[in-house]
Design a protein around this nucleic acid. Structure first.
Length: 423
RNA sequence: GGAGAGAUGGCAGAGUGGUCGAAUGCACCAGUCUUGAAAACUGGAGUAUCGCAAGGUACCGUGGGUUCGAAUCCCACUCUCUCCGCCA
């Protein structure tokens, strides 16, 4: 949600943002509705003022005759007021609907483009492995090592179902544990949030109204969050944060993530790249309403994840997302993608974005700044690490000719000191 | 699942139809006192919105309704708490 006055003052910028993000929102219509809103509001407010004055007169009237007369006059005014209020209500309904569609403005540094294919690589790290044997893909590797069972996964869950088992399960726990240790050292507070959330949280983060198809819903009209960003952002909804709370609003949230993948039925139909249910550690930060702070934290969050991947020694690159690949509320986003040898491509494992006050405005998360003014905080989030997707690269990059897989050094202490996963 | 109580400003908490946008306390800001601080005292201060301003309007969980007038009465919904039941 943007400030309507900001929109009015920057119509061209907003229209350009909508164009870049391929949003069909009609800004001219919004401005027109806002004009009507203001006009009607003026009328309603002056009628209300009249009513309030008259009410006071009724209350202090010296005798009943005077009172009766005032009251009968007020009845007429009341009808007029009610009609006007209905008109205003209707306009406000349309106004709100469009306001929820208005996208946040991408940063100047965000390149134009339509899809993830237009994202621009700006950093490459690590040595891609050279194999002197025919490398296997993660599916074959993991099935051979009895780490995963897709057949029974689909039997139990259906399309995109999977079981992680034995070292597949152990390795997942190792990654979570190691990530917990690694990211909490960066000053984030560990959190286990609910994954079942009320609708308002998804409006808050900006996943609704536009991504409804991709979200699981319960029979109680609750939703299954696709990321811990959703409940973690909701944590401080409708609160005014103290300076201390705002300073410490740096979270590392671990949760299951549920995604219907409604728009991607033909894509990545095998393996662990695209699944309906996975686990993820997510970094979420609230900070003071300063663009510079947002930028600083954004770089930091992204760097945290890069460092984590570097500590695992997996080759990756980082891309800056083009405007067309940004979510409605996002100002700027980096994706970190890991090298997948068999596909000879990089696959996304992390997204780091900042939102300015787009989300906090919807969540109503405020604080008092030094001058005592109420302000909406800024929000940011970034993947710390998703499992099982990270296993795909880990398996393929570290495989050996005999079909075993070398465990990254930093994970060994969580795997009973073992160096390899083997039969 | 059953029974009951409740939701008011940053927090706590009064207020059951008419100058109530709302007492009081705490917290906050400024001043007095003090070498400084604390305490005490004095004063200030809700948020949003319209307006150059004076000032207007809205906001007492949410949405409706009754009324000339609603924090206050009625209806629905949401949430919280207590007790019972069930359950990991």
């Amino acid at each position: 949600m943007l400030d309507i006055n900001f929109i009015r003052d920057n119509v061209d910028i907003i229209k350009d943002a909508a164009r870049k993000k391929h949003s069909k929102v009609d800004i001219d219509r919004l401005v027109q509705l806002d004009d009507e809103r203001k006009q009607k509001l003026g009328v309603v407010e002056s009628l209300r003022a009249e009513q309030n004055t008259a009410s006071r007169a009724v209350a202090t009237a010296s005798n009943n005759t005077e009172r009766e007369q005032l009251i009968s006059e007020m009845k007429l005014l009341k009808e007029d007021l009610q009609a006007r209020e209905d008109e205003l209500k209707k306009i406000m309904g349309d106004w709100r609907e469009i306001m929820l569609q208005v996208p946040n403005v991408p940063d100047m540094s965000v390149p134009e483009g339509k899809t993830d294919e237009d994202n621009q690589e700006f950093k490459v790290w690590g040595e891609k492995p050279q194999f002197d044997f025919e490398p296997k893909d993660h599916i074959e590797l993991m099935e051979d090592l009895d780490m995963v069972d897709f057949t029974r996964g689909t039997k139990v869950h259906g399309f995109r179902g999977y079981f992680l088992k034995n070292d597949g399960a152990l390795l997942s726990f190792a990654i979570w544990q190691y990530a917990m240790d690694f990211f909490t050292k960066k000053g984030l507070s560990p959190m286990l949030p609910p994954a079942i959330v009320r609708k308002s949280n998804l409006y808050g983060t900006g996943h609704l109204p536009n991504e409804a198809d991709d979200i699981y819903q319960t029979q109680d009209d609750d939703y299954l969050a696709g990321t811990a960003e959703v409940p973690t952002m909701g944590y401080y909804a409708d609160e005014v944060l103290t300076a201390e709370q705002l300073d410490n609003a740096k979270f590392l949230s671990f949760s299951p993530c549920y995604r219907r993948e409604a728009g991607s039925h033909g894509k990545d139909i095998k393996g662990l790249i695209r699944v309906h249910e996975f686990y993820k550690l997510e970094q979420v930060i609230l900070c003071e309403a300063s663009h510079e702070k947002s930028v600083e934290y954004h770089e930091q969050l992204n760097r945290n994840t890069e460092e984590f991947i570097e500590s695992l020694n997996i080759p990756y690159h980082t891309v800056i997302n083009c405007a067309g690949d940004l979510g409605q509320g996002q100002v700027k986003k980096y994706d970190i993608e890991l090298w997948v040898p068999r596909e000879e491509t990089y696959r996304e494992i992390s997204s780091a974005s900042y939102f300015h006050d787009f989300q906090t405005r919807r969540f109503n998360i405020r604080y008092k700044d030094e001058s005592g003014k109420m302000r909406f905080a800024h929000s940011l989030n970034s993947t710390a690490i998703p499992t099982p997707r990270v296993l795909v690269s880990m398996m393929e990059n570290f495989q050996n000719a005999d079909g075993s897989v070398t465990i990254p050094e930093v994970l060994r202490k969580y795997m009973g000191g073992r160096e390899r996963i083997e039969k």
